[in-house]
Amino acid sequence: MSDALLCVNDLKKRFVLGGGILGLGTTQEVDAVSGVSFTIAAGETLALVGESGCGKSTVGRCILRLETPTDGQVVLDGERIDDLSPETFRKLRKRIQVVFQDPFSSLNPRRKIRDILAEPLRNFGLVRTRAECDRKVAELLQIVGLSEDVAHRWPHEFSGGQRQRIGIARALASDPDLIVCDEAVSALDVSVKAQIVNLLKDIQKKTGTAFLFISHDLAIVENISHRVAVMYLGKLAEIAPREAILRRPRHPYTRALMSAVPIPDPAMRRTEPLLKGDVPSPIAPPSGCRFHTRCPFVEERCRTEVPELRPVAAGHLAACHLNDLADGENPLLSAPPVVA
């Protein structure tokens, strides 16, 4: 796809664990990301969903070059950015920004809000004079719904939601094409979470910024994304437009994740059986389909043969052998929908 803003091709990231003191101990390797591909169009929000340890944050960090990918490509606007030197990548940083999960540790407590926001403006040479900088800072604060006079206050004076607004303002300072939001609303209270989700959507409408929205919370993801990618143990299980994946998930893991979301209504009881067991260790992932140890539909073939991520409908890709069956025999298609 040449019109994609960002292309991730077969991304792999391997971490080496252990080694002990002076590297004399034994080491283990863990494939945090083992061959992930997706694209993000300009102005689009792709959600990357999965449970802890699935590698979703590592994908984000590889795109941001906070980690160096072991293999694969990251292409921004047709240009490979994964093999650039750190110095060359610095110039690109203004096009890809990040909002982190914890608004308490991601703002420097010793700098006033004005200085936190002025730093990217000056670093990227976006403002020349002090007056220009002040004007731009005021503008950024206004975009995220804070008043101009907060510029002279310190991070500790703000609540979690307000700090997250400041973090978003900082990401917006360089007018980026893409913002990686890594669990950006997960630490916030329910009433404030909704504010920030709506703020991100408004910003996207105004600025056309694309988001990679990394989250474990499908109910929140539904409210912000255009497309959803589901990750399990370092691989994509499924990727599809938001509505398609909600109405008719084509991977048993997606279905299980959806039915595990608690329903805020005591009159409703979940009917779907729960996923058994824990996520296996990524150090020794299961053979064949990585989900086979927990899958309610597991067959002999799943234990040995790795399912390819392949198209099952328009724009809808899934990595499950069940989709090889005729539609009438595919339990994913005949089961009642998880959301009515």
Binding site: D217, E243, V338, A340
Partner: peptide
């Protein structure tokens, strides 16, 4: 009431 409305329910947007 506000908390209940702010709580996302899977599938509502459909």
């Amino acid at each position: 009431s506000g908390l209940l409305r702010a709580m996302p329910r899977l599938g509502t947007s459909l």
